[in-house]
Design a protein around this nucleic acid. Structure first.
Lengths: 85, 85
DNA sequence: TTAATATTTAGACAAACATCTAAATATCTA
DNA sequence: TAGATATTTAGATGTTTGTCTAAATATTAA
């Protein structure tokens, strides 16, 4: 669960999640919303992937990223249980 | 909101919150649950305080820390809205 | 197969961070 | 008021992190 909180601690990574909430996107499509290099973006996606927050799936030339919603359910529950009095 | 996610990204700080969920504690009482120095613990509490996750209140010789539940409600909602599909 | 596009990996670097010890500040008790 | 206890602040240090450029890998299209 540490990797999840670590992953959520960066604003760019949270922005990625917000964008992916609307629809699946490739790195190039995501790139348009950021000022950082493609390499940095790829690095962030890797961290999100390792935290099980997103899923990568190749579709031909592109790799599409999407939210791993099942894990989000778990996290929301965890978060709620942990902190709600 | 950035300070909140940053605050939650450290395991010791999350442990502090879990302990405070049960009851208010002074630094000395908290100290018993950690291996880090009192100064480091104080530093973590400062970060949690700046993120509005905890409240500090002096009671005589001690300073007691407690969860700022109202903010937790907001965060839980934020988290839920942001990530739940 | 070659050129173009998409993405990741490698290596470097500066900034941010967690931690420590020592010193400062605040409060209580004798 | 002095000494003891509680907590914070200051300054130092090693590690982690976000970013970059350049190079490597993968896929498509000509």
């Amino acid at each position: 669960m540490d990797s999840v909180f670590k992953a959520l601690s960066d604003p760019n990574r949270r922005k990625i999640l917000t964008l992916l909430k609307k629809k699946d996107l490739s790195v190039t499509q995501l790139q348009k919303h950021f000022k950082i290099s493609g390499a940095s973006l790829s690095h962030h996606l890797d961290i999100l992937k390792r935290a099980n927050l997103v899923i990568a799936e190749r579709r031909g030339q592109f790799i599409f990223y999407s939210l791993n919603t099942s894990v989000f359910e778990q996290i929301t529950k965890f978060f709620f249980d942990k902190f709600k009095k």
